[in-house]
Amino acid sequence: MATILTDRGELTAATDDGLWLDAADAERATGWVLKPEGMCCDDLCVPLPAAMVAAGRVDVAGFWRRLGNPVVHDEARQVWALGAGAAARRDALAGDAAPDFALPDFAGVTRRLSELRGRKVFLSTWASW
């Protein structure tokens, strides 16, 4: 079992060598759906080279890099981080809405930025260190 860290959260999935996932786990990890024409998200499909799909499993690391996103892993290749590429982050920042996120408060309650729509928000960072 591998641990996969993504913008969509943290999940565990059965993998073969590398980050080969079945179609359901590939969708959980990336949001993209395996179809005959390739990996699809909404109306957009990205063809997969033959080497990236076999017996219903997808080379998710290869696919994710193909989209221009970073993929890093631990030494044992059991923990993977699927990051967002510079273009994806840039587009989101330059888009019509501030990038949304959900984080816990100090009581453990999850708060989502977009809940504050309709109010001005002063979003500020700080640290103890």
Binding site: L93, D96, A97, A98, L113, S114, L116, R117, G118, R119, K120, V121, F122, L123, S124, T125, W126, A127
Partner: peptide
């Protein structure tokens, strides 16, 4: 830190 972003009522930066 500290860095800030100002976001208006429509959710725009």
């Amino acid at each position: 830190v500290p860095q800030a972003v100002w976001i208006d009522e429509a959710g725009r930066i």
